[in-house]
Simulated scan of single mutants.
Amino acid sequence: MDIRKLFGANTRRFRLDLRLSQEAVAERMGVDRAFISSMERGLQNVTLLTIWQVSQALEVRPAQLLEEKASKIRA
């Protein structure tokens, strides 16, 4: 699987687990909602800093965002 799509799918799943909107995650990260949308669709080639920011916003370890079968265990 394309790593961008994997990251996006995990981001979306963890976001939905927390019952957060894309806008709420964007607010936590200080970015635009459209950026969250494009990440979740696998259109963004994110940086390490962005992976860290997403993990903090979604309360997971950064590595969980890149796992093929990410667990639902929180950091």
Results as ranks from 00 to 15, higher is better:
Met29Gln: 02
Leu66Arg: 06
Arg4Leu: 14
Phe7Ala: 07
Glu27Ala: 11
Ala70Gly: 07
Arg15Asp: 03
Phe14Ala: 08
Thr50Arg: 01
Phe7Ser: 05
Asn45Gln: 09
Gly30Val: 12
Arg28Asn: 05
Ala9Phe: 01
Ile73Gly: 10
Ala34Ser: 15
Gln53Asp: 08
Ala9Asp: 12
Ala24Trp: 05
Gly42Asn: 14
Ser38Ala: 15
Ile73Leu: 15
Ala24Glu: 11
Gly30Tyr: 09
Leu65Arg: 05
Leu49Thr: 04
Asp32Gln: 08
Val46Phe: 13
Ile73Lys: 14
Glu40Met: 01
Val31Gly: 05
Phe14Trp: 10
Arg41Ile: 03
Lys69His: 13
Glu23Val: 11
Ala57Lys: 02
Thr50Cys: 05
Leu16Gly: 07
Ala24Ile: 02
Lys69Ala: 12
Ser55Asn: 07
Leu65Lys: 00
Leu58Pro: 08
Leu48Glu: 00
Ile3Thr: 13
Leu48Trp: 07
Ala24Val: 00
Val60Glu: 06
Trp52Arg: 14
Asn45Trp: 09
Asp2Trp: 08
Glu40Arg: 03
Ala70Tyr: 04
Arg74Asn: 09
Asp17Thr: 07
Ala9Met: 11
Ser71Leu: 15
Leu20Ile: 01
Thr47Lys: 11
Leu18Gln: 08
Ser38Gly: 06
Ser37Gln: 13
Gln56Met: 11
Asn10Met: 08
Gln22Trp: 06
Lys69Ser: 09
Val31Pro: 03
Asp2Asn: 15
Arg74Trp: 03
Asp17Arg: 11
Arg19Ile: 04
Ile51Val: 15
Leu48Gln: 08
Leu6Met: 12
Val25Asn: 01
Lys5Gly: 06
Arg15Gly: 00
Arg19Gln: 12
Arg28Lys: 15
Ala57Pro: 04
Arg4Ser: 14
Arg12Asn: 05
Ala26Tyr: 04
Leu18Cys: 09
Gln64Val: 03
Met39Ile: 15
Ser37Tyr: 05
Asn10Gly: 10
Leu16Ala: 13
Val60Ser: 09
Leu58Met: 01
Thr11Cys: 11
Asp32Leu: 02
Ile36Gly: 05
Gln44Lys: 15
Trp52Glu: 10
Ala34Met: 12
Arg33Cys: 07
Pro62Glu: 08
Arg28Trp: 02
Val25Arg: 03
Arg33His: 02
Ile73Trp: 10
Met29Ala: 07
Ser38Thr: 15
Gln64Gly: 04
Arg61Asn: 11
Leu65Ile: 00
Phe14Glu: 08
Thr47Trp: 09
